[in-house]
């Protein structure tokens, strides 16, 4: 049995914006996620990381390409099989205010998935809701309250409990801590880590805080204007970033201590181009300090240039 849980193959998600123009939010992306790992996904706003996450779980239908889960192609799955895949893949959203229905009690929010998948009924269902609340660090009595009665960090815990309710094996966490205060972020990150250890969960963790992504992830993918630029083991990516964009991204990270200010070398680049009218060739070519003639003409291919280190850049072809 292979240890690959999610396989993404040449996935594309284009949006039509009128006049025959398209935004290529996800453009020709291929990678796989191993069972039990955390794959971090970083990129600036508009790089398509959220669209990628949502297309993978099937929330958006792909324009072309495929996603397969535990060996089954999402596009061909039907009926019971499809429901089963839907149960196995869950999402945690960024904004804990708007991702919970304000008119439902917390218990009802968490129980929705349990009912939809027919996992439990009556007393057993209530029992499960209570267990889930305790699991995410809330009190069973909280099931009777409404979302507005909770703080941001607590609401994010409710969102996590809802995702866990159907006993998934794969969770896409889309910026789950970005809206939270610093002191609360660590609580939620530790909770996610504990749950992973407990239930062998696999995570796709989307974020823009590089230090946090490095801390959480086994591997990290770097996206830029809808394309995957580089994918490698976390330590490897930080020790030896290959793509010029990754190098820029790492150089712009704030220092962790004021004494490092003088040592840092910043690579300064211009403004990002519009996703509506992306550059030809490599999308990063307009800002790249090492761009060559060929970069303007064709897009580089996605290749494994070193063991487990993938990059799309002509410097390595």
């Amino acid at each position: 049995m292979s240890d690959i849980l999610v396989e993404v193959n040449e996935l594309r998600k284009y949006y039509s914006i009128g006049n025959g123009r398209q935004v290529k939010s996800v453009d020709d992306i291929s990678f796989s996620i191993r069972k039990g790992e955390t794959l971090g996904l970083v990129g600036e706003s508009g790089s398509g990381k959220s669209t990628l996450g949502r297309t993978i779980v099937g929330l958006y239908p792909p324009t072309s390409g495929s996603v397969s889960f535990a060996g089954t192609d999402l596009a061909t799955a039907r009926g019971r099989q499809k429901r089963e895949i839907n149960r196995q893949m869950q999402l945690i959203f960024q904004d804990p205010q708007s991702s919970l229905n304000p008119r439902l009690r917390v218990g009802e929010i968490i129980a929705e998935g349990i009912e939809a998948h027919g996992l439990a009924k009556g007393r057993e269902k209530a029992e499960r809701v209570h267990q889930l609340l305790e699991k995410v660090g809330l009190h069973p009595d909280h099931a009777k309250r409404y979302p507005h009665e909770f703080s941001g960090g607590q609401r994010q815990r409710i969102g996590i409990a809802r995702a866990l309710a159907v006993q998934p094996s794969f969770i896409v966490a889309d910026e789950p801590i970005s809206a939270l205060d610093v002191s609360i972020q660590a609580q939620v990150v530790n909770l996610l880590a504990d749950l992973q250890a407990e239930s062998q969960l696999t995570y796709l963790f989307i974020a823009h805080d590089l230090a946090m992504v490095k801390y959480i992830s086994d591997r990290i993918g770097v996206m830029y204007l809808g394309r995957m630029m580089e994918l490698a083991e976390s330590d490897d990516l930080f020790a030896k970033p290959l793509h010029p964009y990754t190098q820029v991204l790492l150089s712009t990270m704030p220092v962790s201590h004021p004494k490092h200010r003088a040592e840092r070398e910043r690579i300064v680049i211009g403004e990002p181009p519009s996703p509506i009218n992306p550059p030809t060739g490599c999308p990063f070519q307009t800002r790249c300090p090492q761009a060559m003639g060929i970069c303007k003409q064709i897009a580089p291919t996605w290749r494994e240039v070193e063991a487990k280190h993938w990059v799309a850049c002509f410097l390595y072809e």
Binding site: Q187, K214, Y215
Partner: peptide, 24 residues
């Protein structure tokens, strides 16, 4: 102290747990 400890440092190994500030 709590604030400084609750953000991961780049040299922090992933095995090391973050130390959150409990409560709100």
């Amino acid at each position: 102290k709590g604030l400084l400890q609750s953000v991961p440092r780049l040299d922090q190994p992933s095995e090391e747990r973050l130390i959150p500030i409990q409560g709100a």
